[in-house]
Design a protein around this nucleic acid. Sequence first.
DNA 1: GCTCGGTGTTAATGAGCGTTAACACGTTTC
DNA 2: GAAACGTGTTAACGCTCATTAACACCGAGC
Lengths: 245, 245
Amino acid sequence: MNDAPTRTTPAPAAPTRREQILREAARLFAERGFHGVGVDEIGAAVGISGPGLYRHFAGKDAMLAELLVGISERLFAGGQRRVVDATSTGEGPAAVLGSLIDGHIDFALDDRALITLHDRELGQLRDSDRKRVRSLQRQYVELWVDVVGRLHPDSGEAEVRAAVHAVFGLLNSTPHLGRPGALPGRTATAALLRRLAHGAFASLTDGGPAPADTPADTPAGTPAGTSAGRPGEESGEETAEPSAG
Amino acid sequence: MNDAPTRTTPAPAAPTRREQILREAARLFAERGFHGVGVDEIGAAVGISGPGLYRHFAGKDAMLAELLVGISERLFAGGQRRVVDATSTGEGPAAVLGSLIDGHIDFALDDRALITLHDRELGQLRDSDRKRVRSLQRQYVELWVDVVGRLHPDSGEAEVRAAVHAVFGLLNSTPHLGRPGALPGRTATAALLRRLAHGAFASLTDGGPAPADTPADTPAGTPAGTSAGRPGEESGEETAEPSAG
DNA sequence: GCTCGGTGTTAATGAGCGTTAACACGTTTC
DNA sequence: GAAACGTGTTAACGCTCATTAACACCGAGC
Protein backbone atom coordinates (compact mmCIF):
# COMPACT_ATOMS: atom_id res chain seq x y z
CA MET A 1 0.00 0.00 0.00
CA ASN A 2 2.70 2.52 1.00
CA ASP A 3 4.57 2.81 -2.24
CA ALA A 4 5.60 6.40 -1.64
CA PRO A 5 9.21 7.02 -2.62
CA THR A 6 10.11 8.82 0.59
CA ARG A 7 8.31 7.48 3.59
CA THR A 8 9.84 10.02 5.94
CA THR A 9 7.02 12.55 5.70
CA PRO A 10 3.54 11.28 6.56
CA ALA A 11 2.16 14.08 4.40
CA PRO A 12 -0.39 13.32 1.68
CA ALA A 13 2.33 14.00 -0.85
CA ALA A 14 2.99 11.86 -3.90
CA PRO A 15 0.81 13.02 -6.78
CA THR A 16 1.72 9.72 -8.30
CA ARG A 17 0.37 8.07 -11.36
CA ARG A 18 -1.77 6.06 -9.03
CA GLU A 19 -3.50 9.14 -7.66
CA GLN A 20 -3.83 10.51 -11.13
CA ILE A 21 -5.65 7.37 -12.16
CA LEU A 22 -7.94 7.58 -9.18
CA ARG A 23 -8.87 11.14 -9.94
CA GLU A 24 -9.70 10.47 -13.57
CA ALA A 25 -11.52 7.27 -12.74
CA ALA A 26 -13.65 9.14 -10.24
CA ARG A 27 -14.53 11.74 -12.83
CA LEU A 28 -15.41 9.19 -15.48
CA PHE A 29 -17.36 6.96 -13.11
CA ALA A 30 -19.37 9.94 -11.96
CA GLU A 31 -20.05 10.99 -15.52
CA ARG A 32 -21.07 7.72 -17.07
CA GLY A 33 -21.36 5.21 -14.28
CA PHE A 34 -19.00 2.44 -13.27
CA HIS A 35 -20.16 0.01 -15.90
CA GLY A 36 -20.36 2.73 -18.50
CA VAL A 37 -16.63 3.38 -18.44
CA GLY A 38 -14.07 1.04 -19.92
CA VAL A 39 -10.56 0.55 -18.67
CA ASP A 40 -9.27 1.83 -21.99
CA GLU A 41 -10.99 5.16 -21.34
CA ILE A 42 -9.54 5.45 -17.88
CA GLY A 43 -6.11 4.65 -19.23
CA ALA A 44 -6.48 7.15 -22.05
CA ALA A 45 -7.48 9.83 -19.55
CA VAL A 46 -4.09 9.54 -17.85
CA GLY A 47 -2.02 9.08 -20.98
CA ILE A 48 -1.44 5.37 -20.81
CA SER A 49 -3.59 2.92 -22.62
CA GLY A 50 -5.66 -0.02 -21.58
CA PRO A 51 -4.18 -2.72 -19.42
CA GLY A 52 -1.36 -0.52 -18.23
CA LEU A 53 -3.65 0.27 -15.32
CA TYR A 54 -3.05 -3.20 -13.97
CA ARG A 55 0.45 -2.14 -12.95
CA HIS A 56 -1.19 0.09 -10.36
CA PHE A 57 -4.46 -1.59 -9.46
CA ALA A 58 -5.58 -5.17 -9.16
CA GLY A 59 -8.58 -4.39 -11.34
CA LYS A 60 -11.33 -2.00 -12.13
CA ASP A 61 -13.22 -2.98 -9.01
CA ALA A 62 -10.20 -2.13 -6.89
CA MET A 63 -10.23 1.44 -8.19
CA LEU A 64 -13.86 1.91 -7.28
CA ALA A 65 -13.33 0.29 -3.92
CA GLU A 66 -10.44 2.56 -3.07
CA LEU A 67 -12.43 5.59 -4.15
CA LEU A 68 -15.49 4.76 -2.12
CA VAL A 69 -13.68 3.58 0.97
CA GLY A 70 -11.42 6.62 0.78
CA ILE A 71 -14.18 9.16 0.52
CA SER A 72 -16.16 7.48 3.27
CA GLU A 73 -13.18 7.46 5.55
CA ARG A 74 -12.35 11.07 4.87
CA LEU A 75 -15.95 12.16 5.31
CA PHE A 76 -16.28 10.43 8.63
CA ALA A 77 -12.83 11.38 9.87
CA GLY A 78 -13.40 15.01 8.95
CA GLY A 79 -16.79 15.05 10.59
CA GLN A 80 -15.51 13.41 13.70
CA ARG A 81 -12.61 15.80 13.92
CA ARG A 82 -14.95 18.75 13.63
CA VAL A 83 -17.27 17.41 16.28
CA VAL A 84 -14.40 16.74 18.64
CA ASP A 85 -12.76 20.08 18.00
CA ALA A 86 -15.91 22.10 18.44
CA THR A 87 -17.03 20.14 21.45
CA SER A 88 -13.66 20.38 23.16
CA THR A 89 -13.70 24.15 22.82
CA GLY A 90 -17.04 24.26 24.55
CA GLU A 91 -19.16 25.02 21.52
CA GLY A 92 -22.85 24.21 21.61
CA PRO A 93 -24.64 21.85 19.25
CA ALA A 94 -25.61 24.70 16.95
CA ALA A 95 -21.99 25.56 16.30
CA VAL A 96 -21.07 21.91 15.92
CA LEU A 97 -23.79 21.45 13.36
CA GLY A 98 -22.57 24.54 11.57
CA SER A 99 -19.12 23.05 11.42
CA LEU A 100 -20.45 19.74 10.11
CA ILE A 101 -22.39 21.56 7.44
CA ASP A 102 -19.36 23.58 6.42
CA GLY A 103 -17.24 20.47 6.23
CA HIS A 104 -19.76 18.61 4.15
CA ILE A 105 -20.07 21.55 1.81
CA ASP A 106 -16.32 21.54 1.33
CA PHE A 107 -16.48 17.88 0.40
CA ALA A 108 -19.43 18.40 -1.88
CA LEU A 109 -17.70 21.22 -3.71
CA ASP A 110 -14.18 19.81 -3.89
CA ASP A 111 -14.94 16.15 -4.55
CA ARG A 112 -18.27 16.36 -6.24
CA ALA A 113 -17.46 13.35 -8.38
CA LEU A 114 -16.76 11.25 -5.33
CA ILE A 115 -19.79 12.54 -3.51
CA THR A 116 -21.84 11.41 -6.45
CA LEU A 117 -20.27 7.98 -6.55
CA HIS A 118 -20.72 7.64 -2.85
CA ASP A 119 -24.35 6.65 -3.07
CA ARG A 120 -24.43 5.53 -6.65
CA GLU A 121 -22.06 2.65 -7.17
CA LEU A 122 -22.08 1.10 -3.74
CA GLY A 123 -23.65 -2.05 -5.07
CA GLN A 124 -20.67 -2.82 -7.29
CA LEU A 125 -18.34 -3.41 -4.36
CA ARG A 126 -17.24 -6.69 -2.86
CA ASP A 127 -19.15 -7.57 0.27
CA SER A 128 -16.31 -6.68 2.61
CA ASP A 129 -15.74 -3.29 1.02
CA ARG A 130 -19.42 -2.54 0.89
CA LYS A 131 -19.76 -3.38 4.54
CA ARG A 132 -16.90 -1.10 5.42
CA VAL A 133 -18.33 1.79 3.41
CA ARG A 134 -21.77 1.30 4.86
CA SER A 135 -20.35 1.23 8.34
CA LEU A 136 -18.49 4.48 7.78
CA GLN A 137 -21.57 6.06 6.25
CA ARG A 138 -23.62 4.99 9.24
CA GLN A 139 -21.08 6.44 11.64
CA TYR A 140 -21.01 9.68 9.72
CA VAL A 141 -24.78 9.93 9.77
CA GLU A 142 -24.68 9.21 13.46
CA LEU A 143 -22.48 12.23 14.05
CA TRP A 144 -25.12 14.40 12.47
CA VAL A 145 -28.09 12.70 14.06
CA ASP A 146 -26.48 13.11 17.43
CA VAL A 147 -25.92 16.82 17.03
CA VAL A 148 -29.22 17.58 15.36
CA GLY A 149 -31.07 15.52 17.92
CA ARG A 150 -29.47 17.51 20.69
CA LEU A 151 -30.44 20.68 18.91
CA HIS A 152 -34.06 19.60 18.44
CA PRO A 153 -34.98 17.47 21.43
CA ASP A 154 -38.66 17.54 20.56
CA SER A 155 -38.16 15.75 17.26
CA GLY A 156 -38.11 11.99 17.25
CA GLU A 157 -34.95 10.23 16.23
CA ALA A 158 -36.45 8.81 13.07
CA GLU A 159 -37.49 12.29 12.03
CA VAL A 160 -34.05 13.68 12.78
CA ARG A 161 -32.42 10.89 10.84
CA ALA A 162 -34.65 11.51 7.86
CA ALA A 163 -33.95 15.22 8.03
CA VAL A 164 -30.22 14.56 8.05
CA HIS A 165 -30.50 12.37 4.98
CA ALA A 166 -32.60 15.00 3.30
CA VAL A 167 -30.02 17.69 4.00
CA PHE A 168 -27.35 15.38 2.61
CA GLY A 169 -29.40 15.25 -0.54
CA LEU A 170 -29.56 19.02 -0.52
CA LEU A 171 -25.84 19.49 -0.06
CA ASN A 172 -24.97 16.75 -2.51
CA SER A 173 -26.89 18.54 -5.23
CA THR A 174 -23.66 20.23 -6.27
CA PRO A 175 -23.21 18.02 -9.33
CA HIS A 176 -26.46 19.42 -10.72
CA LEU A 177 -25.44 23.02 -10.22
CA GLY A 178 -22.70 23.41 -12.77
CA ARG A 179 -24.62 23.04 -15.98
CA PRO A 180 -26.73 26.04 -16.90
CA GLY A 181 -25.75 29.41 -15.48
CA ALA A 182 -23.51 28.29 -12.67
CA LEU A 183 -23.17 30.26 -9.53
CA PRO A 184 -20.85 33.28 -9.37
CA GLY A 185 -18.24 31.30 -7.55
CA ARG A 186 -17.37 28.73 -5.02
CA THR A 187 -17.78 31.07 -2.08
CA ALA A 188 -21.26 32.12 -3.12
CA THR A 189 -22.32 28.53 -3.72
CA ALA A 190 -21.01 27.49 -0.35
CA ALA A 191 -22.81 30.36 1.35
CA LEU A 192 -26.05 29.49 -0.39
CA LEU A 193 -25.86 25.83 0.51
CA ARG A 194 -25.04 26.75 4.06
CA ARG A 195 -28.07 28.98 4.30
CA LEU A 196 -30.36 26.39 2.75
CA ALA A 197 -29.14 23.64 5.05
CA HIS A 198 -29.52 25.79 8.13
CA GLY A 199 -32.94 26.84 6.95
CA ALA A 200 -34.02 23.26 6.48
CA PHE A 201 -32.87 22.23 9.94
CA ALA A 202 -34.43 25.31 11.44
CA SER A 203 -37.80 24.13 10.20
CA LEU A 204 -37.52 21.17 12.57
CA THR A 205 -38.19 23.38 15.56
CA ASP A 206 -41.74 23.61 14.20
CA GLY A 207 -43.17 26.69 12.58
CA GLY A 208 -39.74 27.65 11.40
CA PRO A 209 -40.41 31.35 10.93
CA ALA A 210 -40.11 31.97 14.65
CA PRO A 211 -36.90 34.01 14.81
CA ALA A 212 -36.45 34.43 18.49
CA ASP A 213 -35.99 31.39 20.65
CA THR A 214 -38.59 30.36 23.12
CA PRO A 215 -39.02 33.50 25.21
CA ALA A 216 -39.73 31.44 28.30
CA ASP A 217 -36.89 29.38 29.67
CA THR A 218 -34.02 29.39 27.24
CA PRO A 219 -30.96 29.89 29.44
CA ALA A 220 -29.23 32.48 27.26
CA GLY A 221 -27.06 29.74 25.85
CA THR A 222 -27.98 27.83 22.67
CA PRO A 223 -29.65 30.76 20.94
CA ALA A 224 -32.04 29.23 18.45
CA GLY A 225 -31.49 32.12 16.09
CA THR A 226 -27.96 31.01 15.40
CA SER A 227 -29.03 27.71 13.99
CA ALA A 228 -31.29 29.37 11.48
CA GLY A 229 -29.77 32.70 10.63
CA ARG A 230 -26.11 32.87 9.69
CA PRO A 231 -25.95 34.78 6.40
CA GLY A 232 -22.30 33.75 6.37
CA GLU A 233 -19.94 34.71 3.60
CA GLU A 234 -16.39 34.17 4.64
CA SER A 235 -15.28 34.52 8.28
CA GLY A 236 -15.55 30.83 8.85
CA GLU A 237 -15.05 30.62 12.56
CA GLU A 238 -17.28 33.21 14.11
CA THR A 239 -20.47 31.45 14.93
CA ALA A 240 -21.43 34.10 17.45
CA GLU A 241 -22.28 31.58 20.06
CA PRO A 242 -20.97 32.38 23.52
CA SER A 243 -19.97 28.97 24.79
CA ALA A 244 -23.18 27.28 25.74
CA GLY A 245 -21.34 24.85 28.00
CA MET B 1 -56.09 -0.19 -8.59
CA ASN B 2 -57.52 0.62 -12.02
CA ASP B 3 -57.13 -2.67 -13.77
CA ALA B 4 -60.68 -2.73 -15.02
CA PRO B 5 -60.99 -4.66 -18.27
CA THR B 6 -63.55 -2.18 -19.58
CA ARG B 7 -62.02 0.35 -21.89
CA THR B 8 -65.00 2.67 -21.71
CA THR B 9 -63.27 5.01 -19.28
CA PRO B 10 -60.34 7.00 -20.67
CA ALA B 11 -58.60 6.24 -17.38
CA PRO B 12 -54.96 5.13 -17.34
CA ALA B 13 -56.17 1.57 -17.36
CA ALA B 14 -54.32 -1.40 -18.84
CA PRO B 15 -51.95 -2.77 -16.19
CA THR B 16 -50.63 -4.85 -19.00
CA ARG B 17 -47.61 -7.04 -19.08
CA ARG B 18 -45.88 -4.08 -20.61
CA GLU B 19 -46.53 -1.88 -17.60
CA GLN B 20 -45.56 -4.71 -15.30
CA ILE B 21 -42.22 -4.93 -17.07
CA LEU B 22 -41.69 -1.21 -16.79
CA ARG B 23 -42.36 -1.22 -13.08
CA GLU B 24 -39.97 -4.06 -12.37
CA ALA B 25 -37.34 -2.66 -14.69
CA ALA B 26 -37.53 0.65 -12.88
CA ARG B 27 -37.07 -1.04 -9.55
CA LEU B 28 -34.13 -3.10 -10.72
CA PHE B 29 -32.46 -0.22 -12.55
CA ALA B 30 -32.75 1.91 -9.46
CA GLU B 31 -31.31 -0.84 -7.30
CA ARG B 32 -28.34 -1.91 -9.34
CA GLY B 33 -28.02 0.53 -12.19
CA PHE B 34 -28.94 0.16 -15.83
CA HIS B 35 -25.83 -1.75 -16.78
CA GLY B 36 -25.97 -3.79 -13.62
CA VAL B 37 -29.23 -5.46 -14.56
CA GLY B 38 -29.55 -8.10 -17.24
CA VAL B 39 -32.58 -8.69 -19.39
CA ASP B 40 -32.90 -12.13 -17.87
CA GLU B 41 -33.37 -10.59 -14.45
CA ILE B 42 -36.01 -8.22 -15.68
CA GLY B 43 -37.80 -11.07 -17.37
CA ALA B 44 -37.60 -13.24 -14.28
CA ALA B 45 -39.05 -10.41 -12.21
CA VAL B 46 -42.24 -10.55 -14.25
CA GLY B 47 -42.43 -14.30 -14.63
CA ILE B 48 -41.17 -14.64 -18.16
CA SER B 49 -37.61 -15.36 -18.96
CA GLY B 50 -35.00 -13.63 -21.02
CA PRO B 51 -35.71 -12.57 -24.54
CA GLY B 52 -39.46 -12.73 -24.06
CA LEU B 53 -39.19 -9.05 -23.25
CA TYR B 54 -38.54 -8.34 -26.89
CA ARG B 55 -42.19 -9.06 -27.62
CA HIS B 56 -42.98 -5.86 -25.72
CA PHE B 57 -39.97 -3.62 -26.14
CA ALA B 58 -37.49 -3.02 -28.89
CA GLY B 59 -34.66 -3.48 -26.43
CA LYS B 60 -33.31 -2.71 -23.02
CA ASP B 61 -32.59 0.86 -24.01
CA ALA B 62 -36.20 1.33 -25.03
CA MET B 63 -37.37 0.41 -21.55
CA LEU B 64 -35.10 2.94 -19.93
CA ALA B 65 -36.06 5.56 -22.47
CA GLU B 66 -39.75 5.06 -21.87
CA LEU B 67 -39.20 5.22 -18.13
CA LEU B 68 -37.20 8.41 -18.20
CA VAL B 69 -39.28 10.20 -20.78
CA GLY B 70 -42.43 9.13 -18.98
CA ILE B 71 -41.36 10.37 -15.57
CA SER B 72 -40.10 13.62 -17.02
CA GLU B 73 -43.35 14.21 -18.83
CA ARG B 74 -45.43 13.43 -15.80
CA LEU B 75 -43.30 15.60 -13.55
CA PHE B 76 -43.53 18.56 -15.85
CA ALA B 77 -47.19 18.07 -16.71
CA GLY B 78 -48.09 17.75 -13.05
CA GLY B 79 -46.09 20.81 -12.14
CA GLN B 80 -47.54 22.84 -14.94
CA ARG B 81 -51.07 21.80 -14.02
CA ARG B 82 -50.49 22.82 -10.43
CA VAL B 83 -49.09 26.18 -11.42
CA VAL B 84 -51.96 26.85 -13.79
CA ASP B 85 -54.58 25.70 -11.32
CA ALA B 86 -53.23 27.69 -8.42
CA THR B 87 -52.62 30.76 -10.53
CA SER B 88 -56.07 30.68 -12.12
CA THR B 89 -57.69 30.62 -8.70
CA GLY B 90 -55.78 33.71 -7.77
CA GLU B 91 -53.26 32.12 -5.47
CA GLY B 92 -50.02 33.90 -4.76
CA PRO B 93 -46.55 32.53 -5.42
CA ALA B 94 -46.24 31.14 -1.93
CA ALA B 95 -49.25 28.91 -2.42
CA VAL B 96 -48.09 27.93 -5.88
CA LEU B 97 -44.71 26.93 -4.52
CA GLY B 98 -46.43 24.95 -1.80
CA SER B 99 -48.39 23.10 -4.41
CA LEU B 100 -45.25 22.39 -6.43
CA ILE B 101 -43.54 21.06 -3.36
CA ASP B 102 -46.48 18.84 -2.50
CA GLY B 103 -46.59 17.50 -6.01
CA HIS B 104 -42.91 16.75 -6.09
CA ILE B 105 -43.16 15.01 -2.74
CA ASP B 106 -45.90 12.82 -4.11
CA PHE B 107 -43.67 11.86 -7.01
CA ALA B 108 -40.70 11.27 -4.76
CA LEU B 109 -42.68 9.01 -2.47
CA ASP B 110 -44.71 7.11 -5.05
CA ASP B 111 -42.11 6.67 -7.76
CA ARG B 112 -38.90 6.78 -5.82
CA ALA B 113 -37.28 4.34 -8.18
CA LEU B 114 -38.06 6.57 -11.13
CA ILE B 115 -36.98 9.68 -9.29
CA THR B 116 -33.67 8.00 -8.68
CA LEU B 117 -33.22 6.96 -12.28
CA HIS B 118 -34.15 10.42 -13.40
CA ASP B 119 -30.74 11.90 -12.76
CA ARG B 120 -28.73 8.71 -12.74
CA GLU B 121 -29.04 6.99 -16.07
CA LEU B 122 -29.63 9.91 -18.33
CA GLY B 123 -26.37 9.31 -20.13
CA GLN B 124 -27.49 5.90 -21.37
CA LEU B 125 -30.19 7.32 -23.61
CA ARG B 126 -30.08 7.92 -27.32
CA ASP B 127 -29.39 11.52 -28.20
CA SER B 128 -32.96 12.29 -29.18
CA ASP B 129 -34.41 10.83 -26.02
CA ARG B 130 -31.84 12.49 -23.85
CA LYS B 131 -32.59 15.81 -25.46
CA ARG B 132 -36.27 15.36 -24.82
CA VAL B 133 -35.75 14.44 -21.18
CA ARG B 134 -33.38 17.31 -20.65
CA SER B 135 -35.82 19.70 -22.22
CA LEU B 136 -38.62 18.52 -19.97
CA GLN B 137 -36.35 18.74 -16.94
CA ARG B 138 -35.42 22.27 -17.89
CA GLN B 139 -39.05 23.26 -18.28
CA TYR B 140 -39.89 21.72 -14.94
CA VAL B 141 -37.05 23.56 -13.26
CA GLU B 142 -38.24 26.72 -14.93
CA LEU B 143 -41.64 26.39 -13.31
CA TRP B 144 -39.99 26.37 -9.92
CA VAL B 145 -37.46 29.08 -10.69
CA ASP B 146 -40.25 31.30 -11.88
CA VAL B 147 -42.30 30.91 -8.72
CA VAL B 148 -39.40 31.03 -6.31
CA GLY B 149 -37.97 34.03 -8.08
CA ARG B 150 -41.26 35.85 -7.72
CA LEU B 151 -41.30 34.93 -4.06
CA HIS B 152 -37.75 36.14 -3.47
CA PRO B 153 -37.20 39.08 -5.78
CA ASP B 154 -33.97 40.07 -4.04
CA SER B 155 -32.24 36.84 -4.91
CA GLY B 156 -30.47 36.58 -8.23
CA GLU B 157 -31.74 34.11 -10.75
CA ALA B 158 -28.64 31.94 -10.54
CA GLU B 159 -29.07 31.72 -6.81
CA VAL B 160 -32.73 30.83 -7.13
CA ARG B 161 -31.91 28.19 -9.69
CA ALA B 162 -29.28 26.66 -7.47
CA ALA B 163 -31.67 26.70 -4.53
CA VAL B 164 -34.28 24.90 -6.59
CA HIS B 165 -31.82 22.20 -7.57
CA ALA B 166 -30.75 21.88 -3.97
CA VAL B 167 -34.33 21.43 -2.82
CA PHE B 168 -34.79 18.80 -5.52
CA GLY B 169 -31.88 17.00 -3.97
CA LEU B 170 -33.54 17.31 -0.60
CA LEU B 171 -36.89 15.97 -1.77
CA ASN B 172 -35.29 13.26 -3.87
CA SER B 173 -33.56 11.88 -0.80
CA THR B 174 -36.51 9.53 -0.29
CA PRO B 175 -34.60 6.50 -1.59
CA HIS B 176 -32.15 6.91 1.29
CA LEU B 177 -34.85 7.09 3.92
CA GLY B 178 -36.21 3.58 3.90
CA ARG B 179 -33.24 1.64 5.18
CA PRO B 180 -32.68 1.99 8.89
CA GLY B 181 -35.60 2.97 11.05
CA ALA B 182 -37.96 4.30 8.43
CA LEU B 183 -40.35 7.07 9.18
CA PRO B 184 -43.67 6.27 10.89
CA GLY B 185 -45.52 6.49 7.63
CA ARG B 186 -45.98 8.16 4.35
CA THR B 187 -47.93 11.07 5.77
CA ALA B 188 -45.28 11.86 8.34
CA THR B 189 -42.51 11.63 5.76
CA ALA B 190 -44.37 13.91 3.41
CA ALA B 191 -44.98 16.41 6.17
CA LEU B 192 -41.34 16.39 7.17
CA LEU B 193 -40.09 16.86 3.63
CA ARG B 194 -42.57 19.66 3.16
CA ARG B 195 -41.34 21.43 6.23
CA LEU B 196 -37.71 21.00 5.28
CA ALA B 197 -38.27 22.28 1.78
CA HIS B 198 -40.19 25.30 2.96
CA GLY B 199 -37.54 25.94 5.55
CA ALA B 200 -34.81 25.83 2.97
CA PHE B 201 -36.58 28.25 0.68
CA ALA B 202 -37.42 30.51 3.58
CA SER B 203 -33.71 30.98 4.18
CA LEU B 204 -33.48 32.72 0.82
CA THR B 205 -35.17 35.82 2.14
CA ASP B 206 -31.92 36.45 4.00
CA GLY B 207 -31.54 35.78 7.66
CA GLY B 208 -34.26 33.23 7.30
CA PRO B 209 -35.83 33.80 10.70
CA ALA B 210 -37.50 36.96 9.41
CA PRO B 211 -41.12 35.83 9.23
CA ALA B 212 -42.83 38.75 7.57
CA ASP B 213 -41.69 39.86 4.15
CA THR B 214 -41.17 43.54 3.45
CA PRO B 215 -42.84 45.07 6.49
CA ALA B 216 -43.69 48.21 4.56
CA ASP B 217 -46.38 47.54 2.02
CA THR B 218 -47.65 44.07 2.69
CA PRO B 219 -51.41 44.47 2.39
CA ALA B 220 -52.31 42.06 5.15
CA GLY B 221 -52.48 39.39 2.52
CA THR B 222 -49.56 37.09 1.66
CA PRO B 223 -48.71 36.05 5.17
CA ALA B 224 -45.13 35.03 4.85
CA GLY B 225 -45.64 32.47 7.55
CA THR B 226 -47.44 30.36 4.99
CA SER B 227 -44.39 29.91 2.86
CA ALA B 228 -42.27 28.68 5.70
CA GLY B 229 -44.50 27.24 8.35
CA ARG B 230 -47.25 24.98 7.15
CA PRO B 231 -47.18 22.04 9.56
CA GLY B 232 -49.66 20.60 7.10
CA GLU B 233 -51.03 17.10 7.40
CA GLU B 234 -53.87 16.68 5.00
CA SER B 235 -56.10 19.61 4.01
CA GLY B 236 -54.27 20.01 0.75
CA GLU B 237 -55.93 23.06 -0.66
CA GLU B 238 -56.16 25.60 2.13
CA THR B 239 -53.05 27.68 1.80
CA ALA B 240 -54.76 30.67 3.37
CA GLU B 241 -53.52 33.15 0.85
CA PRO B 242 -56.22 35.49 -0.45
CA SER B 243 -55.11 36.56 -3.91
CA ALA B 244 -51.95 38.53 -3.59
CA GLY B 245 -52.20 39.76 -7.20
C1' DG C 1 -61.11 -26.88 -38.13
C1' DC C 2 -57.58 -24.26 -39.85
C1' DT C 3 -55.17 -20.01 -39.93
C1' DC C 4 -53.19 -16.18 -37.68
C1' DG C 5 -51.58 -12.91 -34.39
C1' DG C 6 -49.96 -12.64 -29.77
C1' DT C 7 -46.88 -14.39 -26.48
C1' DG C 8 -43.60 -17.55 -24.81
C1' DT C 9 -39.50 -20.79 -24.94
C1' DT C 10 -34.55 -22.29 -25.74
C1' DA C 11 -30.34 -22.19 -28.59
C1' DA C 12 -27.17 -19.53 -31.22
C1' DT C 13 -24.74 -15.31 -32.46
C1' DG C 14 -21.82 -11.60 -31.93
C1' DA C 15 -20.02 -7.58 -29.81
C1' DG C 16 -17.92 -5.46 -25.83
C1' DC C 17 -14.87 -5.59 -22.26
C1' DG C 18 -12.06 -6.96 -18.21
C1' DT C 19 -8.17 -9.47 -17.70
C1' DT C 20 -3.89 -11.92 -18.74
C1' DA C 21 0.30 -13.09 -21.64
C1' DA C 22 4.27 -11.97 -23.87
C1' DC C 23 7.32 -8.70 -24.86
C1' DA C 24 10.13 -3.95 -24.62
C1' DC C 25 12.55 -0.15 -22.58
C1' DG C 26 14.74 2.90 -19.09
C1' DT C 27 16.76 3.27 -14.51
C1' DT C 28 18.83 1.57 -10.49
C1' DT C 29 22.23 -1.35 -8.14
C1' DC C 30 25.78 -4.68 -7.12
C1' DG D 1 27.70 -4.06 -17.57
C1' DA D 2 24.20 -7.07 -16.48
C1' DA D 3 20.46 -8.58 -13.62
C1' DA D 4 16.26 -6.67 -11.47
C1' DC D 5 12.56 -3.82 -11.31
C1' DG D 6 9.11 -0.57 -12.54
C1' DT D 7 6.25 0.73 -16.11
C1' DG D 8 4.54 0.56 -20.59
C1' DT D 9 2.91 -1.67 -24.98
C1' DT D 10 -0.03 -4.81 -28.13
C1' DA D 11 -2.30 -9.26 -28.97
C1' DA D 12 -5.10 -12.80 -27.38
C1' DC D 13 -8.40 -15.11 -24.27
C1' DG D 14 -12.81 -15.78 -22.17
C1' DC D 15 -16.89 -14.36 -20.10
C1' DT D 16 -20.98 -11.72 -19.91
C1' DC D 17 -24.86 -10.19 -22.08
C1' DA D 18 -28.03 -7.96 -25.44
C1' DT D 19 -30.07 -9.41 -29.40
C1' DT D 20 -31.84 -12.59 -32.95
C1' DA D 21 -33.46 -17.21 -34.88
C1' DA D 22 -36.21 -20.97 -34.85
C1' DC D 23 -39.72 -23.21 -32.91
C1' DA D 24 -44.26 -23.99 -29.82
C1' DC D 25 -48.70 -23.02 -27.71
C1' DC D 26 -53.22 -20.87 -27.60
C1' DG D 27 -57.36 -18.11 -28.20
C1' DA D 28 -60.03 -15.79 -31.83
C1' DG D 29 -62.46 -15.46 -36.14
C1' DC D 30 -63.99 -16.56 -40.87
